[in-house]
């Protein structure tokens, strides 16, 4: 029987906490890319260019129905073939950002479509341009509708960052692997990683829930 070793746990904890920082940085910067790119994808899908719209639609379907792991490998190994050298960090961020951009674009689309049609008509009646209508009327009203979905995907992206360990991004899982192989002890590092994930994702999921309830209350629905 294998015994849990507390001394060893305390000894590796600083390294794991440091790696947790990296995981959070990876998740947040991936999410930043996803937020911006997702908005672009959502707006193109509402635009007038039919061919472009169809292309983007198919691209989103493609990315959403293929595994992130394959996409991470694809970006990491294929970019150098075209002469672009990407570090593990950059290709990891790109892959995870692109993957989640597709999910977020659906959230944005839902939010924008959730804004009552009369708002568009009112903006037209006031002679606002399309850009003005988006920036001043539609997007401010769509944001509260998007928040719950966005929050869920923020927790989701955090839980997907361990996949970046396969291309050598030094996040939590990667560090736990390294500790495990250095010391031939896997129980403590892997279990601690699980506990750290729980400690971060459960409260954040709870926060998202609270925020959702608050927004629903504020919007009076």
């Amino acid at each position: 029987m294998f015994k849990w070793d507390w001394d060893f746990t305390w000894q590796i904890l600083p390294r794991l906490i440091h790696a947790t920082g990296n995981t959070l940085i990876a998740a947040l910067s991936g999410y930043a890319i996803a937020m911006v790119l997702g908005l672009a994808l959502a707006l193109v899908q509402r635009g007038n260019a039919t061919v472009l719209r169809w292309l983007i639609r198919e691209l989103i379907e493609f990315i959403r129905s293929t595994p992130l792991l394959v996409q991470v490998f694809f970006v990491f190994y294929v970019a150098p073939q075209f002469g672009v050298r990407l570090s593990p960090w950059v290709s990891g961020m790109l892959a995870i950002g692109l993957h989640y951009a597709c999910y977020l674009s659906e959230v944005y689309r839902g939010g924008i479509e959730g804004v009552a049609h009369g708002q568009w008509e009112a903006a037209t009646a006031l002679n606002m341009s399309t850009k003005q209508t988006y920036v001043r009327i539609v997007i401010p009203q769509a944001i509260p509708l998007c928040i719950p979905g966005m929050g869920n995907y923020l927790v989701g992206i955090f839980k997907d960052t361990p996949m970046l360990s396969v291309i050598g991004v030094a996040e939590l899982m990667h560090t736990a692997n390294a500790i495990g192989t250095e010391n031939y002890r896997f129980l403590e590092p892997y279990t601690s990683v699980g506990v750290i994930f729980l400690a971060i994702s459960l409260p954040s999921a709870g926060l998202v829930n609270l925020l959702e309830r608050y927004l629903r209350h504020r919007l009076g629905t």
């Binding site: 996949m163 360990s165 899982m173 692997n177 495990g180 892997y190 994930f197 729980l198 459960l202 999921a205």
Partner: peptide, 15 residues
């Protein structure tokens, strides 16, 4: 739901 699938997989397989 609170932890990653990869963590669970490694835990089941290695621990």
């Amino acid at each position: 739901r609170g932890t990653s699938l990869l963590v669970q997989l490694y835990w089941i397989f290695f621990v």
